[in-house]
Amino acid sequence: MSGVFLGALGVVLFVGAWYLAVDVLQLPRFRTLPGPTEVIREWLSPHPVYGTSIFTEVYYQHIWVSVRRVTLAFVAALVVGIPLGLLLGWSTRARQFAFPVFELIRPIPILAWVPLALLMFHTREVSVVFLTFLAAFYAVTLNTLLGVQSIDQNLVRAARCLGAGPATLLRTVVIPGSLPYVFTGLQIAMGVAWFSLVAGEIIAGQYGLGYLINSSYTTTRYPTIVIAMATLGIVGFASSAVIRLVGRRLMAYRARSIGG
């Protein structure tokens, strides 16, 4: 309960500081921003002035489109990134061959990929999913690779001495040993997926929370910008919490298996 209380207190203090800066003190760099009173009133209004609230269908349509894109990209990153990370971490030759290319491409910003994504896929929807996939893919692959490299080689040698073949070694030593790193990578990947999704939706999207932020700015619907940003934070927090929950359960199962 103390953790929940402290988390709630942090949110209250943040909103309070926002309220003081915008509505009370009207600080020079904050006075033009929408305050929490205006945003909450718009967010909870059955008849929102700017057209977006919890009572409007379009609000949930934007959320659904963004969640669907992130889910597709995240699953693709998981399916591609984990096996590639295992391969790069386990095989020296594969790492020497592929890792330089991986490291050459990884620093390229997601926004730099937008023109090529549109040229490659010809549709905005697939382009946005691809851009979201890229950021998550890097995080999953790199953390899986580090997880494999972190495994104690004495465990590997012991398993081989007991007659474990490559498949058994992978199943009983490599994958369980790298799981903590893998789930750290999945949490990072989920965060950067939402980050890159917004960038893709601002430029190439037609629906979604990123698109809503950009269209609200161009039409001066400033409270809607904050509503979309807050919604991104809530949905992103929830998705990362699901990954943490699954990770804790798998780690507990792994600990019981090792203990047994």
Rank of each mutant, 00 (worst) to 15 (best):
P180D: 10
P109V: 00
Q26V: 01
G259L: 15
R124C: 00
G233D: 01
I151Q: 08
L9C: 10
L131F: 00
G210Q: 07
V140P: 05
A73Y: 14
R41K: 15
F99H: 06
P166F: 13
T219F: 11
L197Q: 05
L134E: 04
V22M: 00
F74K: 11
S53M: 10
A158R: 04
L232N: 08
L20H: 10
A135K: 08
I243K: 09
L104Q: 00
A193T: 08
L44D: 05
L20K: 07
F133S: 00
A8M: 13
V22I: 14
V75Y: 08
A94V: 11
V140K: 14
R41Q: 13
T218N: 13
E125R: 04
T71Y: 08
I225Q: 03
A252M: 11
A139R: 15
W113C: 03
P109I: 03
R254D: 03
L87F: 07
V75M: 11
V114E: 07
I105S: 04
M190S: 02
I63F: 01
G200V: 01
R95E: 15
R171W: 01
A73T: 03
L162F: 14
V126M: 11
S53T: 06
V65C: 09
A117F: 03
T172M: 08
I40H: 03
F130G: 05
V114H: 02
I225P: 00
R29F: 15
E103R: 12
S66A: 06
I203E: 02
F130A: 08
A8Y: 06
P100N: 08
G51V: 04
G260H: 09
